[in-house]
Simulated scan of single mutants.
Amino acid sequence: MGLTEAGRIALRYADQIFQLGEQMAESLGDEQLDYTLRLSVGIADALPKTVSFHMIEPILGMQRPVRLVCHEGRFEALCSELVQHSVDVVLAERPGGQGTAHLQVAKLLTYPVRIFASPDLKQKYEANFPQSLQHAPFLMPSRNNVLRLKLEHWLESVGVEVTVVGEFDDLALLETFGRAGLGLFAVPAMLIEDVVRDHTVVHMGDAQGVVEDFFAFTHPRNLNHPALKLLFNVNPNTNPNRSD
């Protein structure tokens, strides 16, 4: 059974009161009020798990302990929760979208994109890379993933048309199919150690000029939260008045 409208309003006020209490504790510096910070994090379902960890890693070193409450969901739904103050921050692989016009956004990480393949596929397609990828089997992110569009533009720029043999919402599932040798695939460079760990796939080449950016979103009123102050202020790309 869901909350009534009155219940949702009460919950929002309770969250605001909780945050005001944290601000008071910080301002007063009273040891008796020095308690663990709570941070509710919405993680877009297209975001690789390892990347999401590195995005929030800076706040894990704060002097005050932080209790994270993390859950995954569709980006649009998470942004709606952010506007309703059901979550404090949303992490995603895209710079914006519907419902983000009045949100604060910061680009936290940027990584080049690399192509991986099973040893057999690498041997077959590595000569004269990337032109050798013509009609090669390729595992792609789904069309609602920003990386998909970037990969398609890159392939077009080098005059190559691959054979898409699979499309995936979940990057981990895409990698599983890649390890089985069903096609080449692309991931951010930061994940290279995870991808090649079991030696079933190898680095084949780079998608030159293609990078994947990762962003954090919050409501401007949430920036009084000590953890979000750190997360957004450590990056000079913070834009307080971003529009779609």
Rank of each mutant, 00 (worst) to 15 (best):
N237E: 11
V201L: 02
L174K: 09
L3E: 12
M190L: 15
H219V: 01
K229V: 02
T4L: 14
K122G: 01
L109H: 02
L103F: 04
T176H: 14
H135P: 00
N224E: 12
M140L: 12
T218P: 00
G96A: 07
R179K: 15
V83N: 00
A136Q: 12
I115S: 06
A6M: 11
V158N: 00
L68S: 03
T200P: 00
Q16I: 14
G99W: 11
E31H: 13
L174H: 04
E126C: 08
A77R: 13
K229I: 04
L39M: 03
L68T: 04
T200C: 11
D120L: 11
V158F: 03
F75T: 11
V164F: 14
S243F: 01
H225E: 15
L28R: 09
D45G: 06
D206T: 15
K122W: 04
G99K: 08
E22S: 01
L223T: 04
S52E: 01
I59T: 02
H203E: 14
G97T: 10
N128V: 15
R64K: 09
L155T: 00
T200H: 05
N233Q: 14
Q84R: 15
I115C: 15
L147A: 04
R94D: 05
T163G: 03
T50D: 11
T110D: 02
F217I: 01
V113I: 13
N222A: 11
G96H: 04
F53S: 07
I192G: 00
D198Y: 08
N144M: 01
P65Y: 06
Y35E: 13
P236V: 10
T110C: 07
V105W: 00
E31G: 05
L139M: 07
L109S: 05
D198T: 08
I17K: 12
Q23Y: 08
S142G: 05
Q63Y: 09
L191N: 10
G96Y: 07
V113W: 02
E57D: 10
E31V: 13
F168K: 03
M204D: 08
M1Y: 10
